[in-house]
């Protein structure tokens, strides 16, 4: 199942050039970009693993593209996303976050039901790897 998370997720996958231009935009806004990856894109899995430190003081997207290439070499079969963090007072949060790499076969999600006390049904979502 194609995971749709973050910005641009309903668009076809971005090319490297498009990624670089998005990153350039983020840098022009003064946001710090970073790379994260995971093998489990469960919607409740908010904490992906960091690929190195967030890149502060970057001037050009080439720096991020370099790290992205390195990350793809190691974790080419995982989800990789690019985050752009805005540190200005009042925001102090991610302003842009988009997936830049997907595994060849994306896992499915399965709805599970568990019966609780008083015949209450609790629903859960479970990542189902193929």
């Amino acid at each position: 199942m194609r995971v749709t998370q973050g910005t641009f997720s309903f668009l076809p996958d971005l090319t490297d050039e498009q990624i670089a231009r998005q990153v350039d935009y983020a840098l022009s806004q003064g946001w710090a970009v970073s790379i994260e990856h995971t093998d489990d894109a469960h919607p409740r899995n908010v904490y992906w693993e960091m690929w190195g430190m967030p890149m502060f003081d970057l001037k050009d997207a080439a720096g991020l593209m370099y790290e992205l290439a390195e990350c793809r070499k190691v974790f080419g079969d995982r989800y990789i996303k690019v985050n752009a963090f805005d540190s200005t007072l009042g925001f102090e949060t991610m302003r842009l976050s988009f997936i830049v790499n997907r595994p060849a076969v994306e896992p499915d999600f399965r709805l599970t039901r568990a019966e609780g006390p008083g015949r209450n049904v609790q629903y859960g979502l479970e990542t189902r790897r193929q």
């Binding site: 001037k59 050009d60 991020l64 370099y66």
Partner: peptide, 14 residues
């Protein structure tokens, strides 16, 4: 290595 790479990344584009 990380230190050098960080400097190189900052310098990219310049």
């Amino acid at each position: 290595a990380p230190k050098t790479k960080e400097v190189l990344k900052k310098a990219m584009g310049g």
